[in-house]
Amino acid sequence: MLDQLQRLGSASLNTLERLGRGHLFLLNVLTGIPGLFLRFRLVIHQIYSVGVLSLLIIGVAGLFVGMVLGLQGYNTLVDFGAEESLGVVVALTLVRELGPVVAALLFAGRAGSALTAEIGLMKATEQLSAMEMMAVDPLHRVVAPRLLAGFIALPLLAALFSAVGVMGGYFVGVGLLGVDEGAFWSQMEDKVDLFDDVLNGVIKSIVFGFVVTWIAVFEGYDTTPTSEGVGRATTRTVVHSSLAVLGLDFVLTALMFGD
């Protein structure tokens, strides 16, 4: 009984300590962000590896999600004779929820894990130590550009996901199932609001981009410097950032749409 209590206690303390380290780490990284604007080439390099290399998976996933939404939405709406609203259903679902959330989950799997593994391996092979000894702060030189790149890339990826998804819904709804094209677009234009829906979706994806990248770079930096440790940190990145995205999505949705 006491043993279990002790285990619970030490687990909580460990979690708290990690959280604290994560925040201190973030503070130290953030102080390096302003300097990056003078050396934006570093960031561009990272946007390439987290953004450009995620384009394909995001585009394909967005297309299929949109097509499925078109199919499922049509089947439900046609019972009410409201299949003209298909555009609204597809667009709202994507712009408000699925775009930011699914893009963030895919981003965590594709780019987040790669970031953790990369930084973890740099630590395991003493590259981070070597930088410190060369009087180059790895938090500023290695971590900060990656954090900023993730922060920039995810909102763009999420927008791409939503846009491609709407096109997928359009192909299925209008192309295959014969929903009226004009109604599809005009109802969408009518019901989707630039600020309430599109902008809120973008805000969500900005928050997700920040949190996922933060978790990824921290797990990489905090990894046990062995190959096993890097493997475990990579898994943790995917699990923790996915959970963080879903949890934050609920909070943000409640704040934005729940009045």
Binding site: V95, A159, A163, W185, E189, V192, D193, D197, V198, G201
Partner: peptide, 9 residues
């Protein structure tokens, strides 16, 4: 993509 989403509105 963002532009397209905005234009729909």
């Amino acid at each position: 993509s963002l532009f397209m989403l905005a234009m729909k509105v």
